[in-house]
Design a protein around this nucleic acid. Sequence first.
DNA 1: GTATAACCGACCGCTTCAGTAGGATTTGGT
DNA 2: ACCAAATCCTACTGAAGCGGTCGGTTATAC
Lengths: 158, 158
Amino acid sequence: MLFSTKAEYGVRLMVELGRQPGSMPISLSAVAEAERLPLSYLEHLVAKLRKAGLVTSTRGAHGGYRLAKPAEEITMDAVVEALEGQIAPMECFHDSPDGKVLCSHEDDGDRACATKLLWTRVQGGVTKALSGTTLAELVEFASPGALGERRAPVGTAA
Amino acid sequence: MLFSTKAEYGVRLMVELGRQPGSMPISLSAVAEAERLPLSYLEHLVAKLRKAGLVTSTRGAHGGYRLAKPAEEITMDAVVEALEGQIAPMECFHDSPDGKVLCSHEDDGDRACATKLLWTRVQGGVTKALSGTTLAELVEFASPGALGERRAPVGTAA
DNA sequence: GTATAACCGACCGCTTCAGTAGGATTTGGT
DNA sequence: ACCAAATCCTACTGAAGCGGTCGGTTATAC
């Protein structure tokens, strides 16, 4: 398995926030009920998203979470990375700040990691897929045609 | 991390076998020494590769392993899948025999998994990278320019 | 001041990972 | 015949991460 349920749940959570039209915050318990996910586990995930600056929170009664940016500007690489940590195919890989890919045992002698070519391609494929997908796309995909009105209060649909 | 060291070690092992010119089998201990990997762990990995039909073995003295096919015909998706199991971004994903991608909680009600679009793209990126890379490419990448002669007995190079 | 909600950290059972250990079996060389 | 080299097989282990729970604290609306 490439990713764990942290990414799965976290993305579902983000989509749920993105579905909401106004600026009203949504409580985690509402999300948990809608997506049928354990509330206390979502708390951990949303904390990561908040620390990554992807959602904002308001405390107290009628509080909850909102997207920090419009869904069109949120790409999924940021979301998945916030939840799962650095996206690298292998332990020895780490992104340098300039976006280059390094392999920590590059200095193994004369020849480079035989595997570097492969993992570089894999990572390229993954990051391209993630950064090429916006939250807005997923929101639209999840509720096709619906434009804010005629949508059942999720979870109660037969 | 997308993959574990099983894929890493296993690929290195395959490359090592691919480096060898003739039809002479190579012992695992030779590979272990060359790649500085624990022999007893490699045993587990090579067993998976053998069961997947990627390498063949000859037992007894002067025995060892050989590629079951020429390196040009071995694509890395088969190798990685043999080592890591089904390549899917998420638990709910499983390949159907016809190569289509299914999501096991597709029947969650009216709307499809919000995440399906994303994971489908990710999986596409990964499998494209893996199936588009042959073992021969990695072998060439690991020993550039060398064509069977002038190659140091790996591990002794300064 | 009470209900609602975000926050925070500790804990827990489970599985996988990475590796070790010990043996059994097959084969080539002498 | 015997020994060394090699594959093969099963079981085990410590450590880490996953998925989730729990109890408690703080902040806010009514």
